[in-house]
Nucleic acid binder design. Sequence first.
DNA 1: TCTAGCACTCTATTGCCAGGAGTGCTAGAA
DNA 2: TTCTAGCACTCCTGGCAATAGAGTGCTAGA
Lengths: 347, 347
Amino acid sequence: MNLDKRSRLILRAIVLSYIKNAQPVGSHSITKHYDFGVGSATIRNIMSNLEEDGFLSHPHTSAGRIPTEKGYRFYVDTLFEEKTFLKNQSQITLEAESLVQREDASQLLQDTSKLLSDLTHYMAIVSAPKISAARINHIEFVRLRTNCIMTITVSEAGFVQNRFFDLEKDISQKSLNNISDYLNSLCKGMTLDGIRKKMSHQMEKMEDLYDHLESETFELTQQAMQGLHSRDTGELYTDGAINIFDLPDFTDIKVMKNLLKAVKEKKAVIELLDKYIGSDGVQVFIGSENRFLGRHGCSLVVSQYKRGDRVLGALGVIGPTRMDYSKVIPLVDSTAKQVSRLLEDLS
Amino acid sequence: MNLDKRSRLILRAIVLSYIKNAQPVGSHSITKHYDFGVGSATIRNIMSNLEEDGFLSHPHTSAGRIPTEKGYRFYVDTLFEEKTFLKNQSQITLEAESLVQREDASQLLQDTSKLLSDLTHYMAIVSAPKISAARINHIEFVRLRTNCIMTITVSEAGFVQNRFFDLEKDISQKSLNNISDYLNSLCKGMTLDGIRKKMSHQMEKMEDLYDHLESETFELTQQAMQGLHSRDTGELYTDGAINIFDLPDFTDIKVMKNLLKAVKEKKAVIELLDKYIGSDGVQVFIGSENRFLGRHGCSLVVSQYKRGDRVLGALGVIGPTRMDYSKVIPLVDSTAKQVSRLLEDLS
DNA sequence: TCTAGCACTCTATTGCCAGGAGTGCTAGAA
DNA sequence: TTCTAGCACTCCTGGCAATAGAGTGCTAGA
């Protein structure tokens, strides 16, 4: 089943042609557009072999061939082997550069998803870092009304989160200010978990020093911080969902609807991205290589972005299996790097 | 052109039937399902008159009649005149009651749009109040890094807004805390504009008391608050956009795409809602009675919600002109009231 | 090992026809 | 004067057959 050079080139030509035109590729059109120095009958023989090996499929007898997922996988792997996409890299990077620095990290991610979807005409997804894993730059408690407070956390990367909590007892804004000041002076750069541990530790030590009221405040705010942890499901930014209307791949309106619904629900997509956080560089998942993607007949090109050496989240593009990988892969790659660079500067 | 009672009843029957079945209504089906004591030929004559008067239209010679916008308008007006929808009111209100109290006002609006779209199977839109018009419950300034601060404003109704500002000079967190404390103690319940004026006033008075550094801080934070005003474009919560896939009214995929796009951009929809804020009670706009709706072939049922006697925003349902008005109108009405009630309690 | 040629298969399009739904009109009944 | 039964007419729809086109698979021969 190891393909000779000619078969590989022809397979590649078929994939390219199908990616471009979304039309089954016939032997004749190959001889017309590519010069392999052989006639269409030979191409037919080779196609037939490729089909037997599972790289191509056949909608019906008198139609051309279309790539199977295995065919796309072969094509993408050669892209990576030959580093073909690096050629486009510099030019694509330029486009990613158009992400300008902004104060608001969430806005940066939203704009990133817009950029990705605009440039690819597919759907873009960007997951935001979880606050529970982030290093905290600032934390603030605000009393909204009796027994109800709000926490505001700002991570070092510039992400802000507001959360609301009902408490068993009321706390004055003054006490909350004290706690805020205390935490901000001592706990900068720590994670929420670290801060919580430190608070417990301090409480034990200072039990006698603090009066009863203060220690109660301590405890309640710690409860709130505990809540921050448990409710931390992650955020997702997405754009370009309506692009799938323009794709000839989605003819069934039901399939489109299901995909839009899944992306709207966010949960499945966040899980999808979370799953592949951890490996460096761009990764490509084609159709049923992943359950979610298989169900909706799509592919995913994804890369993680970081700040320093901490991975913050992932960003990528969801498109049809017939996606233009040679264009999307370098774009996702350079966008991830650019986002990492911009988040680095926010400090 | 004044319709006699029988014509009115028949027109009403046609509208009801078309709303229910999305099929052109023939004279025969009217005689079958409704008992007007006349034969189908008579119905045909009356239909013909109704068409001449512009209430009905005719896809082609051998098809039944469908209501025109004027036909729907007539139907909706009779609903209001006869207060027919009040009958369903109490039952519908029950459904809107399922909006439970939550701490987070934004979440309440998001849930409201979900409730509206789930119950109607149309698209729901809810506009959030502008922070620049709101009474402020709490305001906080956080220093993010050199020359960059964040403002957090919490309105009395419970809406929170974070904004980021680059300043010409750096301010210490300590100075910001002073300003925050000062504003929160003196300015509770005022609007941003009121607070700004008060600050100017105070500055003049206290020029000598405050040292140079503090007055600079004063000025910079005031700049930020000015920025809060100018960038305040309003928020929009929406849900159920994908419901339009299930409607037989939208067969053209291009129309669907345009509508989804317009709702995603938000701006046009916010303007649409803003336009009709000010009049009490439910309002209905059918098709080309409004430019936006006409372009997308939809109708809008909308009502404003308030807190006390201050109007905060509007909520409504966008559906096809063939929308089930008799169900949607009372639902929008009672939901608006319910939201007003819940926001009242957040204090 | 490659290729030209031919028979074969399947799809998509077109035209046609019959059936059905619904109207419009008219003459006659109430 | 108003209503209605009946009939001719219009237009849509679905099914059927014929046709053209695209592409394959196979085979014999270079």
